[in-house]
Each structure stands twice: as C-alpha cells, then as structure tokens.
Amino acid sequence: MPRHPDPTGPDRTASLRAGFRAALPYAAVGFLLSMSFGIFARDAGFSAVAVVVMSAIVFAGSAQFAAVTILASGGTAGAAVAAAALMNSRFLPMGIAIGPSMPGRAPWRAAQGQAIVDASWAMANRGDGTFDRWFLFGSTAPQYVSWVAGGLLGALGGDVFGDTSRLGLDAIYPTFFLALVIAEVKDRTTLAVAVAGGLVALALVQVAPAGVPVLAASLVALWGLRRRPEEAA
C-alpha cells in the first residue's frame, strides 16, 4: 500500500489546482517552444494543419523536434518515428514508477499514463516513491493547452510574423534543448554521454544518410549497461 492514500473529494480538487498553478511557468515556456516547433515544421514542409494535428495527438516536444529534424534533413518516416520512440523511451521508467499510484484496470491505467510529461511527473513525485496522480493531471492540463496553442500560432507564423528567420526564432529550439541537456547532466557519466552523443551525430552529418546521425547518438547510451546499480543516478 502506498503511504499516501489517493486523494478524494476536496483534497482531490486541491491537488488538481496545486498542479495547475505549479505548471504555469512550464506552460509559458512550452508555449514559446511549441511556437518555434510550428515555425520549424512549416519550414520543413508541414502544412499548418499537420503542425496542429501533430502537436495535439503527439504532445511530446523533444520527440516532435527529433522527428521533424530527421524529415527536414531528408530522412524517412521510419527513421523519424524511430528517433521519436527513442526520445520517448524515458517515459517507460517514468510510467513504471508512477504505476502503483494509478489505480484501476490496465486500460484505464494506460489511459492515465498519457498525462505523463517531464515537468508534471517530476512535480507529482511526493519523494517517497508515491505520486499524486491528481497533481499530475492538474499540471499536464495547462501544458497541453499551451502546447497546442503555441503550435497553432507558430504554424500560422509566416502570416503573423512575416519573415520569421529575420526574428531569430530558430534559436529558441536549440537553446531550450541545451537547457534540458544541462538539466540531464548530473555527473561525469551523463556529461561524457551528452558530449559523445552530440559529437557522434555531428561527425556523421556529412557522411551518413539523413536521420542516422541522431539515431547513432543513442548507441552511446549503451554505456549505461556498464554501470552498477548503486551508481545509477
């Protein structure tokens, strides 16, 4: 049994509201990122409808950018989806961790798992191995709305902003992801893996088929097989 019971009644509403408030800064940054995704995807050949549909039904920023980066460099749909799947692989252990805090039958738990996004998952963690799922739902809701809204604005960006490249909006995406890399670097191993992964991809850019450089970077993560359990961060 989890040490904390699943909130009910007013406690449930309080959790939802607390999650909603805590997620607002992430929703704001997500809006900018999603807008830059929309502009980026339009440049890669996406229609405005395709951008909004993708943001609405995929709702995974790094996976969307990875997939579109590969298409933009001339890669296949298969390579793009593979990169998205690898990028999303982190949701697997996150979902396993939150599983015991999500009651109900398997299909219902799988449906609740759709609410997992990085910031919500981290904030819903009570720090004792249990999660407040209502906090998770409350914090994912504004992030979803701002993600789709930002994508819509970015998709129409060409009409709203004129020549978007003059505004330097293409610098949002690498800077945001650099922030995520810095957050991921917690020790020497993660730093070495990040540097090696980046260099592998960059080294292959001019020689490997499109899509392969980013996928090849994931092989560096196999270094994790060498780590002993007590060293795992």
Partner: peptide, 17 residues
C-alpha cells in the same frame, strides 16, 4: 542505466546538429 542516458545523448545530438 541505458534509458536514463538516452535523453542526454539524443538531446545533445539534436542541439549540436
């Protein structure tokens, strides 16, 4: 161990490329 290293490797690849 492998899954936790997947994000830094892929994100850094996206940033540099």
């Amino acid at each position: 161990g492998v899954i936790t290293l997947m994000a830094p490797a892929l994100l850094a690849a996206l940033v540099l490329t």
